[in-house]
Amino acid sequence: MTLRGRRILLVNLSLLIAIALAIFPLPNWAAAVRPDWVALVLIYWCIALPMNMGFSTAFIFGVLLDIATGTLLGQHALGLTIVSYVILKNHSRLRLFPLIQQGVIIMLLLMVKQLVFLWIYGMTHNAPSNMWLYFLPSVISMILWPWLFVFMENIRRRYLNI
């Protein structure tokens, strides 16, 4: 397979697996702090392959996630568009940061995404009652980021070695 074919396959497959993780059944306490898998994987690809990533990927997988999780059509698509915009705009800077610092930036970015979601939940009368719990998934995503980055980097080096 050509490099381009392998790249498209790998990006889409990893995002599909991320959607599967996003709907994987968890006990109630764990589901409340489930990390934002799709956003994390998308952020990785935006940092690793900024030239090949655009908003179409964010939109398509956002809509798939919306339908899989029963949210409004476009809610996750909007969140992922915002996230990938900020990352694509600053990818060359982000690449130079140590992994921990990258994680902190990503946590703040995911919190902005959750803030947008909070407005949407508020407008559709699903406002969460516990604000501390609400932002916890972003913190868990930050803790997870270095491991995910190293893991994905290994996969990319193995299959997309340029």
């Binding site: 908003f55 939109f59 909007l78 568009t81 915002i82 949407i120």
Partner: peptide, 14 residues
């Protein structure tokens, strides 16, 4: 520009 257009499209969709 693309990001703004996409965001507006998402809001319309929602």
């Amino acid at each position: 520009l693309n990001a703004i257009l996409m965001a507006i499209f998402c809001v319309v969709l929602m």
